[in-house]
Amino acid sequence: MNKEIKFYKYQGAGNDFVLIDNRNLAFNAADNDLIKQLCDRRFGIGGDGLMLLQDTKNFDFEMLYYNADGREGTMCGNGGRCLVAFARDLDIIQTNTAFLAVDGPHEAEIHDNQVNLGMIPVTEYQMDGEAYVLNTGSPHYVQFVDNLNQINMFKEGYAIRNNATYAEKGINVNFIEKEGEGYFVRTFERGVEDETYACGTGAVASAMSVALKEGRDGDFNIPIRVLGGQLYVSFHKAGNSFSKVFLTGPAIQVFKGSITL
């Protein structure tokens, strides 16, 4: 028997997602082929990923995130911000929230269409040549360049994501360039297997890499421009440890509809 599912489309700095209110558990989260189809830009709704908002104990809601390839993903920062806006629009929350994601609890606040999302602390990083490798809820490779507009992101990102070091589990590949008072970042995302207009955990990893490269401790608030807009990353750095990590940027409903499954 066919059933109709309501869906919502949100975007955060160009990172777009299919969102479903699954508090009634009517959507089958185990159907990876269906999720992949819904994220397909030609044969489905289209999105960089799909998220389910579900009930959970001790938190306002739970975030379940799936990559565009249909498989459950690691933390998505821009997705988290969009789900906070979705929860506000559903009247689940007002301004402040605490929710549960795959990498643990998150706090956030929303004002109009701007969401300030708390991210996990980071206590270690590695170097791969001159590139920084960090896990900010998802694994990221960050390389500083001075020709970002000329880089073939699919070719270069694909090569790193699929090299002998990262091929098995995959990694998100970021290139970062100084730009005025802030930085410009472009990201090749695993799961999407292409460049996206924004990546929240990638923006966080890139900002942390700036602080590591500069070798400075203290409080940081770093503007990160992405293809889809402007993000801001703030944190406190002490040695190799980052705490009080926040990702700030827009989260906007694009449209809503229903689809028969």
Rank of each mutant, 00 (worst) to 15 (best):
E109R: 10
V115C: 09
A98L: 13
H111I: 14
M51L: 12
I110A: 01
A87C: 07
V115R: 08
F99S: 01
R81I: 04
Y66W: 04
E107D: 10
M51T: 05
N116D: 14
A85M: 03
R88A: 07
G77W: 02
A101K: 00
T95K: 10
T97Y: 04
M51P: 06
T56W: 13
T95W: 12
A85I: 03
D55P: 06
A68L: 11
G104N: 03
T97N: 11
T74S: 09
E62A: 15
G80W: 04
L64F: 13
N78T: 11
D103V: 03
E62Y: 14
C82D: 08
G80R: 00
R71G: 11
A68K: 06
F99Y: 06
I92V: 13
D60W: 11
N67T: 08
V102S: 07
Y66N: 08
D91L: 10
L100H: 07
T97I: 06
L52M: 06
K57G: 14
P105M: 09
P105I: 05
A68N: 07
T97P: 11
F86G: 01
D48L: 00
M75D: 05
I110F: 06
N113T: 15
D60C: 09
P105Q: 07
D69W: 10
H106S: 00
D55S: 13
K57S: 15
G47T: 10
A87V: 12
L83E: 07
T74L: 00
L53K: 01
Q114K: 09
F86L: 06
P105G: 04
Y66P: 00
Q114V: 15
N113E: 13
A98I: 15
D112R: 10
L117N: 03
T95S: 13
N78E: 03
F61L: 05
D48Y: 11
G47Y: 14
L64T: 08
R81D: 02
V102N: 02
H111E: 14
D69I: 09
M75G: 04
G70Q: 09
V102C: 00
D60R: 10
R71E: 04
V84M: 02
N96M: 07
C76Q: 08
L100D: 11
G80K: 01
G47E: 07
D103G: 04
A108N: 01
L53A: 06
D89C: 10
A98C: 14
